[in-house]
């Protein structure tokens, strides 16, 4: 950003703060809902009452009841646990493997780099959601398998970014000095390269959290998620779809939850990326 005049830069800092605050608030709201929400909403998200199916919103049940008479608010609130669990677990796994592989590839270069990069290229030939879909199809439905599928879905991006960060940090004097002083490669990688690449990688984690939530609920939407009674947002969207004409809230509520959660992570990731330089996009 060398050619940017000073007033412009200040302005960018202003929008960055706005993003961080808005993203942080939305993410905090999501985490709070996932942790404390089920205790605050007393209704049972699994209690089927067929005689009260599709009951419109009331004071006791602010979002009304779904097609099986279950409290919609309770289901959306419990769904936050599924969404957070799958996204955190999947992104953590994808980031751990992806960053480790990518950082080694970038640091070592040569043959290791060629092998790892080629493997990542092959994964990237299955575009975006298709990779998650195939992984889920291969592993079968279920909560743990969806989390693993989201991990595989997240891995290539982390590997790619970690590789390019590591390859450029490798040329830094302090890294070469550390290696020249006889530090083992593993130590150089962790102490110097990963520590200095942390900023952009953390921003990427936040962006990928949003993507992971969308992908996980997309899988549930297609019937590859946790089995039916689970209040997963994507599954709720799928079952609510049939009632779009008479009770659109069945689709609007879980979708809005999903949208706001993903938006929070995107804003946070975008803000973090901007405040820590512009190396991630």
């Amino acid at each position: 950003m060398t050619g940017v005049p000073a007033p412009l830069r200040r302005n960018r800092a202003g929008t960055t703060r706005g993003r961080l605050v808005a993203g942080g608030l939305l993410t905090a709201l999501l985490l709070f809902t996932a942790l404390a929400g089920p205790f605050l909403v007393p209704s049972d998200p699994y209690g089927i009452q067929l005689d009260r199916a599709l009951e419109p919103p009331s004071l006791a049940h602010p979002l009304g009841r779904d097609a099986l008479g279950r409290d919609l608010l309770a289901r959306v609130v419990h769904g936050a646990r599924y969404a957070c669990g799958v996204a955190f677990g999947g992104v953590a796994a994808g980031a751990a493997f992806g960053i480790w592989l990518g950082a080694w590839a970038g640091y070592l270069g040569g043959r290791a780099d060629r092998i790892i990069s080629r493997a990542v290229d092959v994964l990237m030939a299955f575009p975006d959601f298709l990779l998650a879909l195939l992984a889920a199809a291969l592993l079968g439905p279920g909560l743990l398998n969806v989390t693993a599928a989201v991990g595989i879905y997240s891995l290539p991006d982390f590997a790619r970014v970690a590789r390019s960060l590591s390859a450029s940090l490798r040329e830094e004097n302090y890294v070469m000095a550390s290696a020249a002083l006889g530090a083992p490669s593993r130590r150089v990688l962790v102490r110097h390269i990963l520590k200095n690449a942390a900023g952009p990688l953390i921003a990427l984690v936040s962006l990928r959290m949003g993507r992971a939530m969308a992908a996980a609920s997309g899988l549930s939407f297609l019937g590859l998620g946790p089995p039916p009674p689970a209040p997963e947002w994507g599954a709720m969207l799928e079952s609510g779809r049939a009632y779009l004409w008479i009770a659109p809230r069945l689709v609007l509520a879980p979708g809005a939850a999903l949208f706001l959660s993903a938006l929070g992570f995107y804003l946070l990731g975008d803000g973090l990326g901007r405040s820590g330089g512009d190396s991630s996009r």
């Binding site: 949003g210 969308a214 609920s217 997309g218 939407f221 969207l237 779809r241 779009l244 004409w245 659109p248 689709v251 609007l252 979708g255 999903l258 949208f259 706001l260 993903a262 938006l263 995107y266 804003l267 975008d270």
Partner: peptide, 22 residues
């Protein structure tokens, strides 16, 4: 733009069906 990116494509689709068709 960020909001559009955060919209799940299938939810956006359902909202469009809701608004335009329903």
């Amino acid at each position: 733009n960020l909001s559009i990116l955060a919209l799940p494509v299938y939810w956006l689709g359902m909202i469009m069906i809701l608004v335009f068709t329903v």
